[in-house]
Design a protein around this nucleic acid. Structure first.
Lengths: 202, 202
DNA sequence: GTCTATAGGACGATAGAC
DNA sequence: GTCTATCGTCCTATAGAC
């Protein structure tokens, strides 16, 4: 639960963020939200137009948080592969999955343009941002000139998102770690420096 | 809907399979199942103990179908990268996502061991099967001896599962295709033969 | 702002007629 | 086997007191 110092509105958004992560949108009931936020019905409908409106506020906040976290890691100087490895190895809470990527499986989120927009925006931003990092690496002759930045960026984000899926299916983080190791080994083999040094920073 | 030639039990299982794919388990109501199957409540509770039992039959069938389809593609002779490329490029209905991988996002599926088992089994089988293909490629000197078969297999399955996520988020199949192109380019660069011939078979 | 009361409908399951 | 009737609960939302 949340401290009394948080406003009811704030408790509702934070509760919704947690529940969207744990149970998705269709799996989250108003009862569960209100219980976790320690708020009544009236409080929720005073601050928000309904469940979808509250979910929108929650998803927007989570999307912004995810982008800020990614940018913070990727902005740290280093070779392209080092920056990518740092970002990939930083991820936490593997078995909980990605709070944004997981929403793509929710039918009501995908059907609602307002709920879907931050999901689309964030994952697209991430692909473009990683493509920039790869293009940087090519410019500095760290990476093969034949490497397609956008395609490789899509592959990296897909490994991350798919790694969560495999870990949740297996019930352990092992396949996630293996998938990350696999993509970094493939990327590292394209660098000029010793590929075995990759990931030491993560 | 389904032909009268199908038994009610069969119509229920097929309707559940479709709805699990479209809306997941928590997003699928008995009403929707019965409507699609053109059956009454009594029919469903005669053949199955309840919603979970029907879902179990549906997921088991979908899991077996997915494994059979993958095995059919991977068993076709060729180099390791050719076989992997054929399997990756064969995938259809990208925007619908993976009917098995998508279930990892469903809280009630993951919480129910009977529903979760076929999901875990199928994705684990796929990783091990792809690792075998990669090990074959190493034995025939098609692939780098330093390549870790299990890690690389996890990466490939993750690209597939994550590709679905990116495609659904973007609303187009483009990121899926890019992710597949990216991983095949990385794998192809590790072959002895011309990497540009990869994917011509898909 | 936050509460409780209430609404009409859907949920998931059971009972029992045919 | 399949149907309809019914159950108790929860859903999402509105109304109105405080």
């Amino acid at each position: 639960m949340y401290y009394k110092s948080m406003s009811a509105r704030e408790r509702l958004v934070e509760s919704m963020r947690e529940l969207l992560w744990e149970r998705g949108y269709v799996g989250t009931s108003p009862k569960a939200i209100l219980h976790r936020a320690a708020a009544g019905q009236g409080s929720m409908y005073h601050h928000f137009a309904g469940k979808a409106d509250l979910a929108h506020a929650a998803i927007e906040r989570t999307a912004q948080e995810m982008q800020d976290l990614a940018e913070a890691e990727l902005a740290i100087p280093g070779t392209a592969v080092e920056r990518i490895a740092r970002y990939l190895r930083r991820e936490r809470d593997v078995l909980r999955g990605c709070p944004i990527g997981g929403l793509t499986q929710d039918p009501d989120v995908m059907a609602n343009p307002a709920l879907r927009a931050p999901v689309e925006r964030t994952l697209t931003w991430l692909r473009v941002r990683l493509a920039d990092v790869i293009a940087d690496g090519r410019r500095h002759d760290e990476l093969d000139a034949a490497m397609d930045p956008l395609a490789t960026a899509a592959t990296i984000v897909a490994v991350l998102q798919g790694g969560y899926v495999l870990a949740r299916a297996a019930g352990t983080t092992d396949p996630f770690d293996e998938a990350i190791d696999g993509i970094l080994a493939l990327l590292g083999a394209h660098t000029v420096s010793d590929p075995h040094s990759v990931g030491e920073s993560g």
